[in-house]
Amino acid sequence: MVAEHVQNAQDPGAALAAIRIIGADTFAPALLAGVALHPQDAEAVALSFTALPPSQEVTPSPPTGPEEPWVMAWRDWATVTLLTALASSAAERVAAPRPAPPSVTDPASGEIADWPAWSVRMGQLSTLALPGLDGPVHDAARAAPLALSRGATRAVLRRDYPTAARIVRWLAWLRADGVALPLDPAPLVEHIGLTSGGDRVALDTAISRRLIVG
């Protein structure tokens, strides 16, 4: 599917950029539905990194460094990590260093200092909420289910469904990981799926449903 998308695109460069943007979700069918990753698809993902190479510098976490490069660095790390796990031969030509971990707690209080902004930032990293990935971002999610629950609820109440879908996906991942949650993510996923539109929201809610089912 991925290779065909690149081969048939009028602008192959834009198609490769789209793979980089989708990131680790390229592997969602293989990870969640038991569909084998086609070798040509793995090659297409590797080609996207060859054509648009990521920075090899370790990106500091916000607020020490800028947010956008840090988020993209984590997304690239996730894609390369899964490519290595699913198709090691294709991954030999690509590399993406692991960025600095996200901040989780306020050192003074031991709690999330600004949970609205923190939950939105975690939502931007929702492509990491997949089986087969684990690291500092996942540890941050495990350490703050209440902040993620508050962030998801706030986004739904504000009718910011793209943000809600991304944050709820972390809640679905936490449920699949066996973490106790202060709310059930399943009704939120269904509500978002029924009241919002767009391909990105549809993808996030579909992945959340698969994570919740197990």
Rank of each mutant, 00 (worst) to 15 (best):
H5T: 11
Q10H: 10
G13K: 10
A15K: 10
L16H: 06
A17N: 08
A17L: 10
A18S: 11
R20N: 07
I21Q: 13
I21W: 11
A24Y: 04
F27I: 10
A28E: 11
A28S: 14
A28L: 02
P29W: 07
A30N: 00
G34C: 14
Q40E: 13
Q40C: 08
A42I: 02
A42V: 03
E43L: 14
E43P: 01
V45F: 08
A46Y: 12
S48G: 01
F49W: 05
T50G: 12
T50K: 12
T50H: 08
A51W: 14
A51S: 14
L52Q: 15
Q56I: 10
V58S: 10
T59H: 09
P60G: 07
P60W: 15
T64C: 05
G65H: 12
P66Q: 12
E68W: 10
P69H: 09
V71I: 15
V71Y: 09
T79C: 11
T79V: 01
T81V: 04
L82W: 07
T84R: 15
T84Q: 11
T84Y: 02
L86D: 03
L86T: 07
S89W: 08
A91M: 11
R93D: 10
V94G: 00
A95E: 15
A96N: 01
A96Y: 04
A96H: 03
A100K: 12
P101H: 08
P102I: 08
V104R: 13
T105W: 09
A108W: 04
E111S: 15
D114W: 10
A117E: 00
A117N: 11
V120Y: 13
M122Y: 06
Q124N: 15
Q124S: 13
L125D: 02
S126P: 00
L128R: 13
P131M: 05
P131K: 07
L133N: 06
G135L: 11
P136G: 06
H138R: 05
A140N: 03
A141F: 05
R142S: 00
R142T: 01
R142G: 01
S149G: 14
R154M: 13
A155T: 06
A155M: 04
L157Q: 14
L157I: 12
R158K: 13
R158C: 04
R159W: 08
D160T: 11
P162Y: 03
P162A: 04
T163A: 15
T163Y: 02
A165L: 08
R166P: 00
I167K: 00
R169M: 14
R169A: 03
W170Q: 04
L171C: 07
W173D: 00
A176F: 07
D177W: 06
G178P: 02
A180F: 05
A180T: 15
A180E: 15
L181Q: 02
L181P: 01
P182W: 12
L183I: 14
A186W: 05
A186E: 00
P187W: 14
P187Q: 13
L188D: 01
H191A: 13
I192A: 05
I192R: 03
L194D: 15
S196I: 01
G197D: 12
G198S: 08
G198E: 07
D199C: 03
A202P: 01
A202I: 02
L203R: 14
L203E: 06
I207P: 00
I207F: 05
R209S: 00
V213D: 07
G214R: 03
